[in-house]
Amino acid sequence: MSMDDKQQPNKNIDENFDEDTTKDKYLTFVIDGEDYGIDICNVIEIITVTAITWVPETPPEIKGIINLRGSIVPVIDVRVRFKKEEKPYDEFTCIIVTEYNEYTVGLIVDTVNEVLLIPEEAISSPPNAKLKYQNKFIKNIGKIGDNVQLLLDVDKFLFS
């Protein structure tokens, strides 16, 4: 059983990846100049922004639904979710299609950077001071050299 947990699908990033190679890997993306990372296990594919159909009575961050080769996928604007100012989508804007607990959701980000290996020892918890402005969507902070990656808590991001 424990094997299954690790064997999260990772189909389109790199065909050569197997379950071991997804360990400690993060897809990094940019929101408002800041680098964020998302566990590669949750990522299905990256697409450019396509036609988004707006759906009524949804929270503002849900921009609508897209047609991803026949399946209907809701998309969330990460900027709106992070309460940042919206900006028009350009040629760098990407949708990261993620899968989490049977939910498939697209995340609209400013742009994606690369897949980074961040070993466990390079990851530290966010500051423990419970300050008001602390971002609840950040699970951990990863360090690669001088760069800092804010690692996204997908569960909280989608469901809180």
């Binding site: 036609a51 209907i72 959701v105 989608l158």
Partner: peptide, 21 residues
């Protein structure tokens, strides 16, 4: 999609010939 809660007045969606929803 499951992620979107039930919406009053909308029962589902469909794909049109040009790929639009």
């Amino acid at each position: 999609p499951k992620y979107i809660k039930k919406i009053k007045g909308i029962s589902g969606c469909t794909l049109l010939g040009n790929g639009d929803i």
